[in-house]
Amino acid sequence: MEWFKTTWGRVTIAAVAVLAVVLIIVAVSGGDDEDTAAPETTAAPETTDAAPETTAAPETTAAPETTAAPETTAAPETTTTTEAPSACAVENLPLVAADTLTVATGLPVFPPWMGVGDDNFDVPESGTGFEGALVFALAAELGFSDDQVTFVRTGFDEAIAPGPKDWDFNIQQYSITETRAEVVDFSDPYYTTKQSLVTIDGTSVIGATTLGDLADARLGAAIGTTSLDFIEDVIQPSEQASVYDDNVDLIAALVAGQIDGMIVDLPTAYFMTAVQIPEQGADGIIVAQFAIEAADPDNYGMLFAKGNELVPCVNEALAALDADGTLQALEDEWLAAGGDIATITE
């Protein structure tokens, strides 16, 4: 009798402890915590760090998050024009390393974004590929010389964890989304793309020209991409989309006959059919591109730490590159446009 009691005692204590921890955490975070967050953050730092810590400011910007929205629209520069020339001079930019533009990107980097050409694979410093060339064009526009640009490598997800960053901005095809913009800041879009359907020889999706043709297709996409949202929101096949870590796994699943096709953006589709799929011994086919905008259009932006004051300066430089046609020229050079690929509109 005694042992039975004590065992149940232990069971109860363990269960209650687990529940209690969860409940406390949930209760503490309950409801919208914006208003509780504000006083705590504003009180402490401003009294302790007086003048020298100018970088402390971004962390206390709980309220101005509502102003993040205009940055995704076309032309927010009008508000900053008066102070821009001095604020955006190289010596005044809030950089992580003095006189150096520290650019973060993925490891490794893939064509057509960075490191295009046999000798340049995984060499972002080569300035090849759309994003590689863009970084140097942008740096020049901001007033940096080519040797003032340094690349560091980060994981895709690690860039969004809370905390300080050791780079100025991160560029690796981050799609701008509202939910992401709550945690980090984005530049204006530097590229807008279409989704496309890629497969290999002998699958059922070849020849698809409407969304209806894909109703029973087994489709896959990489995690965290707009392509995955596109399958679930627009194509809506009867079979749930399969989700993989990266494009290499997608191809493996395609070759293994576990999916019929994959959704990727068009520039990636070109690269996969040209390089990655042949490497796995199959013939890649771009079946179609979609002239349907996803609920969340696929705009790529450079990613900054929340509240980074570099954003308006980068946006200004980006707007200049857009106005003088550089951006379009880079796109034409590195991201070739579609030819005889079907366009699915409905």
Binding site: I223, S242, V243
Partner: peptide
């Protein structure tokens, strides 16, 4: 890794979509 959408993977997908880690706490519970 094979594309199977099991519990932790669903948490992963949610995290990648929203940049919020709470979904992992759901899986842990």
């Amino acid at each position: 890794v094979l594309g199977v959408r099991e519990g932790l993977r669903e948490a992963d997908i949610y995290n990648a979509r929203t940049f919020n880690y709470t979904s992992y706490v759901v899986a842990a519970v």
